[in-house]
Amino acid sequence: MKLAIFASGNGSNFAAIAEAVKEGTINAELVLLFCDKRQAYVIQRSQELGISTICFEPKDFVNKAAYEQELLQILKVNQVDLVVLAGYMRLIGPTLLKVYSNRILNIHPALLPDFPGLHGIRDAFEAGVIETGVTVHFVDDGVDTGPIVAQESVFIDEKDTLEMLEERIHQVEHQVYPKVIQETIEKLSKTNEWKWSVEG
């Protein structure tokens, strides 16, 4: 099975996934990284690992549909079966969702449906809850509303700073996400619907 990772930032989850692929704990081929920000550090990480890296931005296109159509063509050429979002900071639109329904995974740093959106860790911390965590879910057309695949809790200690909580959340992400990706691959591999068709 062939994976593509979409990322926008530092790329720590990307690195954890790439390492799991290298070690064989994710039984798949990581064929490319796509990044929508030309200055993102994840690009350097990917290039150092020798992974094919593609970068362009929505502003390079007339609209979002054209941007995603270019992405779709890249995925098609590379016969990508599963898309994994790792800090990709854009909503997936209908052009990609139509083709990759239930084949785009995302990880969110909170226990959905609580604290969706861009600042899940900060929002949970400022709300004063005693428990937050991480959620892996399939992507749909909403903001962190897709079907939940897995969750893991992280308790918030009264002595925690936001930075301490962020570090613990990221550590859990790096453990949970590769495991769930592999489980998803195993489930998809049992069906005849996952394999990408290059026809059409």
Rank of each mutant, 00 (worst) to 15 (best):
H108K: 02
L111F: 04
E173H: 03
V134R: 01
H108I: 13
T95E: 15
V172G: 05
L97Y: 05
Q175D: 09
I169M: 08
F138M: 07
E158R: 15
V136F: 00
P147N: 11
E163G: 02
I169A: 08
V99S: 15
F138H: 04
H108A: 10
E126V: 00
Q151L: 07
A150K: 14
E158H: 15
V99F: 06
V134C: 13
F155I: 00
G146Q: 07
E152M: 10
V99H: 13
K159V: 07
I130D: 14
L111E: 11
F125S: 09
Q171N: 08
V149C: 02
V139S: 03
D114L: 00
G142M: 08
H119N: 12
L118S: 06
Q151P: 10
D140E: 11
H137Y: 01
A150D: 14
E173A: 13
V143Q: 08
G128I: 04
H137W: 03
H119F: 12
F125H: 08
T161L: 01
I104E: 05
D157Y: 13
I107P: 04
D114C: 00
H170W: 01
Y100G: 13
L165K: 02
E158Q: 14
E166A: 15
Q151D: 11
V129P: 02
N102F: 09
F155W: 07
D114E: 14
F115Q: 10
L96I: 01
Q171H: 04
D144W: 05
F138S: 09
Q151C: 06
I121V: 14
D114N: 14
D114F: 00
E173P: 02
L111C: 02
S101C: 06
V176K: 12
E173N: 08
A150T: 12
D140R: 06
E173Y: 01
S101M: 03
E158D: 15
F125L: 01
A150S: 15
Q171V: 15
L162H: 08
G117C: 12
Y100S: 09
S101A: 14
G120T: 09
V176A: 09
Q151A: 08
D160N: 10
E167C: 11
D114M: 09
E166W: 01
V129Q: 06
V149T: 08
L97F: 02
E173I: 15
P147Q: 12
N106G: 06
S153I: 00
K98I: 00
S153N: 08
P116I: 15
I104F: 13
N102V: 02
F138N: 07
D114I: 00
P109W: 12
G120H: 05
V149I: 15
V143N: 03
R103F: 12
V139C: 06
Q175E: 14
L162E: 15
T132S: 12
T161R: 12
T145A: 03
I148T: 11
E152P: 05
V176Q: 09
H170D: 04
L162K: 13
F155S: 05
D157N: 13
H137F: 12
I107W: 05
P113G: 03
